[in-house]
Amino acid sequence: MQNQQDFDSLVGKSKLSDGVDRRTFIQTAVGVGFAAAAMPVMAQTMIKTDTVGLTAGVVMVEVNGQKVPVYRAQPEGKTNLPVVLVISEIFGVHEHIADVARRFAKLGYLALAPELFVRQGDPSKYPNIGELIKEVVSKVPDAQVMSDLDAVVAWAKANGGNTNKLAITGFCWGGRITWMYSAHNPNVKAGAAWYGRLVGDPTPLSPTNPVDIAAGLKTPILGLYGLKDTGISQESIAQMTAALSKGSSKSTFKVYADSGHAFHADYRPSYVEADAKDGWMRCLAWFKENGVV
């Protein structure tokens, strides 16, 4: 497990001026800028990982006639790489998600962050979270997401990735998808779910939730959650823990007493540096423990 000094050396903090015009953060390209609904951006705590020694940028993966943009980062010129899927928050594949992919690439992974909202809309265009959820996120079927991720895994296998060493991690919306895709694809060897929703009422687009698939889950998932998260109750974590106990996945939770939701998001006011770093190190150790390295 890396120590704090190693982490700081790896990713380095970007010293952007507090006076930067927030509009400069809003872009439409995958892996660039931030959605309007994600504002305000906290420039002083943002982490920036360079591309030295990496091949990084957007590739297109076709799924049933739809081209899905995927931010790809990997060590330059390397093959037979362990693969990690990086699943975004509701804000889509913006600069923070791309940076997380580069962090994994610096450690030897082929990291792939697909834009899973591409059919429903551009998350960067919506001015607030309510509209973004209503107009885009709520219209994304789980089945579509599973199909897109299957295609991304197939792309990885054909392009230098060792999908026998497949991991997944995701944040918020992507945290829920981390649980769901791990149940969908038994080839996933390990997952790290950051504050993803665990329970909920079934809908036509999301007929099941993590608590419903927990007993049959085989993949070991590390759940990284905040005690102060007002959207994800400790009761729901207890429900999930009880459901997991009926199966054999060896999943576990780490709940941070001083954190709420989105404590890993270094570009948002919710960021808790100590817990984000600890969670990142636990994620890496979890992947290593389960053979994804």
Results as ranks from 00 to 15, higher is better:
Ile177Leu: 15
Leu222Phe: 12
Asp212Tyr: 10
Thr163Gly: 10
Thr169Lys: 04
Leu85Arg: 02
Cys172Glu: 12
Ala183Cys: 05
Gly19Glu: 13
Lys106Arg: 12
Thr252Cys: 05
Ala154Lys: 13
Gly260Asn: 01
Asp50Gly: 15
Ser124Asn: 13
Gly223Ser: 11
Val140Pro: 03
Arg176Trp: 01
Trp280Gly: 00
Met39Phe: 10
Pro82Ile: 06
Val83Tyr: 07
Ser17Asn: 00
Gly216Ala: 12
Gly33Thr: 07
Trp194Leu: 14
Ala73Trp: 06
Leu107His: 02
Lys218His: 08
Cys283Gly: 00
Leu10His: 01
Ser233Tyr: 04
Thr51Glu: 13
Gly19Cys: 01
Glu289Gln: 15
Gly130Ala: 15
Asp99Met: 05
Gln4Leu: 08
Gly65Glu: 12
Val140His: 03
Asn187Arg: 14
Pro75Thr: 06
Lys67Tyr: 01
Ala35Glu: 11
Thr230Ser: 15
Asp266Met: 00
Ile213Pro: 01
Lys134His: 10
Phe263Met: 07
Trp286Pro: 02
Ile232Glu: 13
Ser9Val: 00
Asp122Arg: 12
Val140Met: 06
Val152Thr: 13
Glu131Asp: 15
Lys139Asn: 14
Val20Ser: 06
Ala167Lys: 07
Thr28Arg: 14
Gln27Pro: 00
Trp155Gln: 02
Pro204Arg: 06
Asn80Leu: 05
Val118Phe: 04
Lys48His: 12
Ala167His: 03
Lys277Met: 07
Glu289Leu: 08
Val52Tyr: 00
Asn185Met: 03
Gly130Thr: 15
Thr203Ile: 09
Ala276Glu: 03
Asp6Lys: 13
Ala43Gln: 07
Leu112Ser: 01
Arg23Thr: 11
Ile221Arg: 08
Thr178Trp: 10
Gly174Lys: 13
Ser259Leu: 07
Phe7Asp: 00
Gln74Lys: 14
Trp173Cys: 07
Lys125Gln: 14
Gln66His: 11
Leu132Arg: 08
Ser245Thr: 08
Lys228Val: 01
Arg103Tyr: 07
Asn3Ile: 02
Val20Ala: 02
Leu112His: 05
Val59Leu: 06
Val199Lys: 12
Trp194Asp: 11
Leu284Ala: 03
Phe34Val: 01
Asp8Val: 12
Pro207Asp: 08
Ala36Asn: 05
Gly279Gln: 01
Ala183Asn: 15
Glu62Asp: 14
Lys189Thr: 06
His96Met: 08
Leu132Gln: 03
Ser17Lys: 02
Glu62Phe: 03
Val293Asn: 09
Lys48Phe: 12
Ser248Met: 00
His264Pro: 01
Asn185Lys: 10
Ser17Tyr: 04
Lys246Asp: 02
Gly191Glu: 12
Tyr225Pro: 11
Val86Trp: 09
Gly19Met: 07
Val52Phe: 03
Val58Phe: 13
Asp258Gly: 09
Asn209Ile: 07
Thr24Phe: 11
Ala215Met: 01
Gln5Met: 06
Ala193Pro: 13
Pro82Ala: 10
